[in-house]
Amino acid sequence: MSTAPTTEGQARPLGAHPEGDGGSDTNRRRGRTMRDIAARYRRQAPGEPRAVGYLYVLPALVLYALFLLVPLGQTVWLSFLHWDGLTVATWAGLDNYQGLLTDPSLRGPFLHALVLLLFYAALPVALGLLLASALSRFRVRGTTFFRTVFFLPQVLAMVVVGVAWRSILAPDGLLNDALKSVGLESLTRSWLGDYTWALPAVGAVGTWVETGLCVVLFLAGTQRIPRELYEAARMDGAGALREFFAVTLPGLRAEIAVALTLTIVAGLRNFDLIYITTSGGPGNATSVPAYEVYHRAFETNEVGSAAAMGVGLTVMIFVLTVGVARLVEGRNR
């Protein structure tokens, strides 16, 4: 390569790898083709600025803009209006947003969403860590089977999950049957019809759905933690608890961030489950922003307020996911 013909010199900075050996500098014809190739290569090098890139992006961008970016902007616009979906809209200014903060029927859903996040995000991550740390202590057989089973709830349609759990939580459902059979008849109730218990019951379904995801993530994560760290911890006489806090938890930081991001987003985008199991009831006990957007826009014709709710939900998701990322990065430094 050190004796490469001078004609090829131009291509060098671009990282070209001319074929053939470098000793062909006596062959003038070959030198010319090399020069042609180098010229063409320079013109079309992949990393070079190329206007043709816009053409490749354009079809996707048009569709994405028409059916995602524009509606997003329209939602923001609608949130500043009073509109029933039929008659002429009137300017509302910040009225709809003020309502989100002051009106209990609008503020309530956000509080419910925060409660649900304990079930959708905090509990699954805690359970996942528990299970993963138990499994990190030695090689487990049949991981593929367990992984497939744990992750299964993630691929089921939430409508199906809702129908299945509605029958489990029904007054004559599996949960009450099980409670009766162990003599806890006093605890049986209509789980989804109870003002106190409906929200935790819906939350428990979220825990069921999301725990498997966390377990699968953390299992993959613990496998990447070097064995030597565990051995060193054990040599220092660390018990299971110390080992968890000194080795497993720091080693899983990235996975915990991913798990929290995914579960928080899933916990706030939970329209399907609420619609199928409780429709926000009893009363407003399980109403969440995702459900209220639909309810207000298409059932009670408060489009402006629904749009403000949608914006509020979006902001909530972005703040929480960015917060999780910050938290993880911050500790990294």
Binding site: P71, P289, V293, Y294, V311, L313, T314, I317
Partner: peptide, 9 residues
């Protein structure tokens, strides 16, 4: 981005 932020418009 949640679908709920798009579905109304």
């Amino acid at each position: 981005l949640p679908q709920e932020a798009l579905v109304v418009p």
